[in-house]
Design a binder for these strands. Structure first.
Lengths: 111, 111
DNA sequence: CATGATACCTAATTCTGTTAGGCATAAGAC
DNA sequence: GTCTTATGCCTAACAGAATTAGGTATCATG
């Protein structure tokens, strides 16, 4: 997923949901670029992970899609459904909780 | 691994190394208990994950072992090798860096 | 006209963790 | 006294998510 390592595992859905929450309607390639920017190049999403994840979230009813023609190319936009908005919030909260717990376990200052 | 979810993936080695660094010589079961205490019950290491991880770290030369008889039972103590100490430090630093990056990506205050 | 960026996708493999066992001693409850 | 719980080690089958490595196609630039 990136050159930072396997720590990302399990965070991909959270990242995708939060990007969509903050940015609204976004397409796959754009998500990879935004994450790259926000992480200053340290998180490079692979498409092999991203697209299946988007499809999974859509299948779970958290995302809805819209296809738009850009010239002769199809661009597929994703946006959060109402359930998706709730889930985005929950996932971020869960991540914050996880970080706090890890701070205790690793005995480091994170928050 | 716990009821908090798959966020733990990829953090197990870091946790084990840091516990051994802070506590010194520790045995497997004791590690599960310490992590449980430090995490206030929210991280429950499963043995199916822990023991293979300990064996892996030992095979990589990061841990050394010592068997001690406690009554009629064998207890297997693990401790960091010099390489293990370096690795523990690096892993924790890497985790902190990961958290900072995630803070940017998720646009939340973590530190 | 060739390369790199844009843009979507899937399949095989790998890696880690979960689930679900097995084995055995020690301690406490009833 | 025996039954359950805790202590303590282990492995194997399975599951899930990401990596690696493809495929396809349009568009812009040198």
């Amino acid at each position: 997923m990136t050159h930072s390592p396997e720590l990302l595992k399990g965070t991909l859905q959270t990242i995708v949901l939060k990007i969509l929450k903050d940015h609204g309607r976004t397409y796959g390639y754009e998500i990879t670029q935004r994450v790259k920017e926000l992480s200053e190049g340290s998180i490079l999403l692979t498409e092999g992970a991203l697209y299946p994840t988007l499809h999974r979230l859509e299948a779970e009813g958290l995302l809805k899609t819209e296809k738009v023609m850009i010239g002769k190319r199809v661009r597929k936009y994703y946006a959060l459904t109402p359930d998706g908005k709730i889930e985005a919030k929950d996932r971020v909260a869960e991540f914050i909780g996880f970080i706090k717990t890890m701070g205790h376990v690793l005995q480091v200052e994170l928050a």
